[in-house]
Amino acid sequence: MLKKVYCWVRDEDKELFKRLGQWAEKEFSTVLVDVRAASSKGSFPLPFPPEYDGLLLTGGGDISREYLEKYAQQPVHNPALIQSCDRLRDEWEFSMLEQALKNGKPILGICRGIQVLNTFLGGSLLLDIPGHNDPEQHDQNVQELDFENQPSFCFSKVNSSHHQALDRIATDLRIEARSKKDGIVEQVRLKDYPFCVGVQYHPERDLHYYKSLFHAFFLSL
């Protein structure tokens, strides 16, 4: 029987996650279920826990102001810094994350995903940062990392494409890697949990280089 990993994939990333899904199905008998493609009439219901095996939180627009204020108690003094938010996505991902954590499901958060994880657990965000969204960093693994706390994965250089980042780290998260140039958090894991890793970089853009990360996630299902 095929295992199922639920996710929300924005239009511009469909081909990247299609390739990831093809590899996952071939090597791990796992399918990626894009809730946007699977749902109809604009509604995005949560699957019941027995219906899925893991959660993949992918990249995308910023978390909306209401969710930052609700979960992180983070005042947003300049709402203009929040870009391309999608409240339907926020509602689905935060509810899905809550359910997945309660049921011990493996979780991997990418870019926006690490921010959703930190926010849900009570951490805050830097709403606009310089130097992490330059064109040459979009696909090339050029950003060097410093590691700490016996990291789950050690990619010496990563790609970098984001204008927000973690600020106050949620109590239950452990920092594993930071950008060498400015200390921005690039990798975390949830303490005392079977598999829950968040990365600020984009492993889906280079499946060969980041293979070990996806391999560990799919094996944990």
Rank of each mutant, 00 (worst) to 15 (best):
Q143S: 11
Q83R: 14
V9D: 01
V199D: 07
H215K: 13
G113R: 09
L57Q: 07
F48D: 10
Y67T: 13
V33S: 05
V197W: 07
I175V: 13
V9W: 02
Q200K: 10
L190R: 14
S64T: 15
I129A: 10
L219P: 01
K102H: 05
P106I: 01
W8C: 00
S220N: 08
F48K: 10
K211Y: 13
M96H: 06
M96L: 04
L219W: 04
A37N: 11
D86W: 11
Q99L: 12
F195A: 07
C85N: 13
L32Q: 08
P130I: 03
L68K: 13
I114C: 06
D146C: 05
P49M: 05
R205K: 11
S161H: 12
L166V: 15
A177S: 03
R36P: 01
A100F: 00
D34M: 04
D34A: 13
F17E: 08
H77G: 03
R189K: 14
E144W: 08
D134M: 11
V188H: 04
F155C: 02
G42A: 04
C154V: 12
D62V: 12
Q150P: 00
S43N: 09
S29F: 03
D134S: 11
K14Y: 06
G104K: 10
V76M: 00
R89T: 02
T171C: 02
T171G: 03
P151E: 07
S179L: 02
S95G: 08
G60D: 04
A72H: 03
N149W: 04
Y52E: 02
P135K: 07
F214N: 09
I110T: 09
P203K: 06
S95C: 02
K14I: 00
D128T: 15
S220W: 04
I82H: 15
